[in-house]
Amino acid sequence: MLTLLLGALTLSAIYALVGFAWVLLRRTNGILNLATGAQLAIGAFIFNQFATSWQLPWPVVVLGTLATVAALGGVTHWVVFKKLSGQPEFALVVATLGLASALKGVSSLIWGTEARVMREPVPSQVVTFGDQATTTLYGLCGLGAAVLVFAAAHTFFKFSTVGIRMRAAAENPVLSAQGGIAVDWVYVLGWAMALTVAAIAGIMYAYQTALSFHGVEALGMRGLAPALIGGLTSVRGVIPGALIVGLAETFGTKVFGGSFQDVAAWIVILVVLLIRPQGLFGDKQVQRV
C-alpha cells in the first residue's frame, strides 16, 4: 500500500512538471499548446542524443540539452507564433497541432520509433523506506526535480524583475507594451521555459520507463489533466491536480489493469469538464464567450 502511494507520488511529480509546461504557455503566451506531448518527447530525445549517442560528459549533456531546448522554444515563437499574433485563438491552437505533426515526423526521421534505453549517470536501484515501502532512485530524482522546478519558478516569478514582467505581460500584454516591456521576449522566454520543463519531465519519465516517442508523447498529452484541474492558468493549481491524476492513474491501473494508464487522465479531464470546467483550483474565472 505504501509502495503504491509512493508510486503515485513519484508519478504525480512527473505530472506536475508536465502540467507546469501546459500552464506556463497558456498563461504567459495565451496558447493552449497541443504540441506539448511532441515537445516533451523531442526534449527527451535531444537529451538522449547528447547522453547516449554521443556519450558526452554529464555537465555538457545537461547544458547542451538546456541550450538546445531553450533555443528551440525561442525559434518556435519567432518563426511561428509571432507571425500569428492577432489571429483568433483557434488559429493558434490549430498551429500547435500542425507543429505536433511536424515534430513527430522529424523525431521519427532522426531517431526512429523503437524504444531506447538511456545512459544512466548512476545505476538505477530500488530504495526501501521502513519495512516494505519501496520506490526507485529515479522516481525520487523526478520528485526532487519537480520540487526544484516549482521552488525555482516560485522564486523567479515572485522576486526577479524578469519574472514580474512575465506576470505583467501575462495579465495584460498591451499595457505591458505601453509600459515599455518587450513582450516578444517574454513570449520567447515563455516558450523556452515551458519546453525546458517539458524536457525535464520527459527525461525523468524516460528514466523510470523507457525512451519511446509514443510513450513520452502520450504522457505529455495526459499532462493536460493536472493543468485543467488547476484551471489552465494557475501554476499552484497544478500541484493538487497532479496528485489527483497520479492517484487516479496508479490506483486505476491497480484495479482495471495496465492499459488503464492510457485513459485515467482523460477520464479525469471529462469529469472535470462535466463538473467544473474552469478548474477545481483555478485562480480566476474563465471568460465565458
Binding site: 514580474i164 506576470r167 505583467a168 495579465e171 515599455g180 516591456i181
Partner: peptide, 12 residues
C-alpha cells in the same frame, strides 16, 4: 494581479 511594488518594478 501584481502588487503595487511589482507594478513599479515591472517598468523597464
Amino acid at each position: 494581479s501584481l502588487t503595487v511594488d511589482e507594478n513599479l518594478r515591472a517598468v523597464p
